[in-house]
């Protein structure tokens, strides 16, 4: 089962993230002296390594919380995370939670979270109590990681058409499409309708193009 960027776009469209200009991976950069003065972020002037850390951590977490048969995780997560970064408060909290998780990985396991084995990543999250934690945006570290990392990723996956299809529903609640499918006895086998819906629900090209827009 392969996730695509279009799956991420469909979920983002449901969250109201459509069009709106450039968003890049380095949205996650902390402000430099220069950008702090102008209030700008994500202009390419930040620490690229740190940006990579956030997306790598999120992708590595996704590889654990998504079903093992999932392919295309990296592109999907990057597209989704970059789209979410358009909400500044969400972007900062997600970045902080991911960096916190990464720091704990180095403390406990002696390596970056993204460089741990899948088993170690899974163990770390469970040892932190993230599986049982309530998702609280500004709660304890376990609650914040549950909210900003694990639940963010699970929402992206199971609200996407491909994630939904894996469970048996091609139009999971949270994005448009249910009126087309509610009368059907079974899921359609082809993906044509799904792609059409994703394009109609959001300005697909704007969103997809945004991550390369410099």
């Amino acid at each position: 089962m392969r996730l695509t960027r279009r799956d991420a776009i469909a979920v983002l469209a449901g969250l109201g993230v459509v069009g709106g200009g450039a968003v890049a991976v380095d949205q996650f950069d902390p402000p430099t002296a220069e950008t702090a003065e102008t209030g700008e972020t994500g202009d390419g002037g930040g620490d690229g390594a740190l940006s990579a850390t956030v997306t790598a951590t999120m992708t590595a977490a996704a590889a654990v919380v998504y079903p093992s048969q999932t392919e295309g995780v990296a592109d999907f997560v990057e597209t989704y995370v970059v789209g979410r970064a358009r909400d500044e408060s969400r972007r900062d909290a997600m970045r902080d939670a991911a960096l916190e998780l990464d720091a704990i990985a180095r403390d406990w396991y002696g390596d970056d979270f993204a460089d741990l084995s899948a088993d170690d990543r899974d163990s770390l999250l469970r040892e932190l109590g993230v599986a049982a934690a309530d998702p609280v945006a500004d709660g304890t570290v376990s609650e914040r990681i549950r909210f900003h990392v694990v639940n963010e990723l699970l929402y992206a996956f199971y609200a996407s058409p491909t994630g939904g299809r894996l469970v048996g529903i091609e139009n999971p609640i949270g994005h448009a499409g249910g009126t087309e499918s509610y009368q059907r006895a079974t899921m359609l086998e082809d993906d044509a309708g799904r792609v059409e819906r994703a394009e109609r629900a959001g300005d697909a090209e704007d969103v997809e193009g945004s991550e390369a827009d410099e």
Partner: peptide
């Protein structure tokens, strides 16, 4: 249950979660 909401309240993830959601939905 809706799979999306079920996933966000679950106390597991990965293949375990998928198995739970498949059992719960449909």
């Amino acid at each position: 249950p809706s799979p999306v909401i079920g996933a966000l309240h679950a106390d597991t993830w990965g293949d375990d979660l998928l198995g739970q959601l498949k059992a719960d939905y449909g």
